[in-house]
């Protein structure tokens, strides 16, 4: 006996969305609470520290131009993602492959740049455990910088892995069930945009303020 579970491809008549879409949004809601807790901790720790002991990104040696460039990389990857989905909607698989591949490549570029930033910090003997300033009553700025960007990078890596799977294996679904593939790309896109959205808050919080 085979079990057919409804609303995988066609939207539910009352909620108007597929199960997958509702599922990913619930997942994203929990992710909002995760990053929300991290930002809330940032606020609490910063409020608890003396004003002069909390560095701006520049004071802490973060490279603002590189950070800005990386932000633009991630934003660009978001539009290529949404274009990839739109290409499927317009029945153009070749364009989908181009855009989707570009999204993955841009994600990798973001990670490589991030890795260079990290190794530059390590080269200057700055680690998560390093306080700012070194002496006196230091703040945990570097700890937050590494933890928050590290966790974000983990999300980027996860997104890239999922997207790679979709690009090389998941895409086979195009032959049998176009709508289902389009739905899956939309879901992957929602996750990817969310990762972008987190960075939109992380960048000014850590680099500019």
């Amino acid at each position: 006996m085979s079990v057919v579970i409804p609303y995988q491809v066609e939207p539910h008549p009352v909620t108007g969305v597929t199960s997958g879409k509702l599922g990913i949004w619930l997942f994203l809601a929990s992710e909002v609470m995760l990053f929300g807790a991290l930002f809330s901790s940032y606020v609490l720790l910063r409020v608890g520290a003396a004003v002069e002991n909390w560095p701006t990104g520049v004071e802490a040696g973060l490279n603002v131009p590189i950070g800005t460039a990386n932000t633009l990389v991630l934003i660009t990857s978001s539009i290529t993602m949404v274009m990839a989905w739109a290409s499927l909607k317009m029945d153009n698989l070749a364009a989908f492959r181009r855009y989707f591949g570009t999204t993955i490549a841009l994600g990798l570029v973001f990670l490589v740049v991030k890795a260079f930033e990290y190794s530059d910090k390590f080269g200057h003997h700055i680690f998560p455990a390093t306080g700012w300033p070194e002496a006196g009553d230091p703040s945990v700025f570097y700890g937050l910088y590494f933890t928050l960007t590290g966790l974000h990078a983990l999300h980027v890596i996860l997104g890239i892995l999922v997207n790679l799977w979709l690009l090389f294996f998941g895409v086979a679904l195009w032959k049998t069930d176009k709508e289902r593939l389009t739905g899956r790309i939309e879901i992957a896109g929602l996750y990817w945009h969310f990762v972008d959205l987190v960075w939109i808050f992380l960048f000014p919080t850590l680099y500019l303020l």
Partner: peptide, 8 residues
């Protein structure tokens, strides 16, 4: 993005 960096 450019604006927010500029403001900083």
């Amino acid at each position: 993005t450019v604006v927010t960096v500029g403001i900083s």
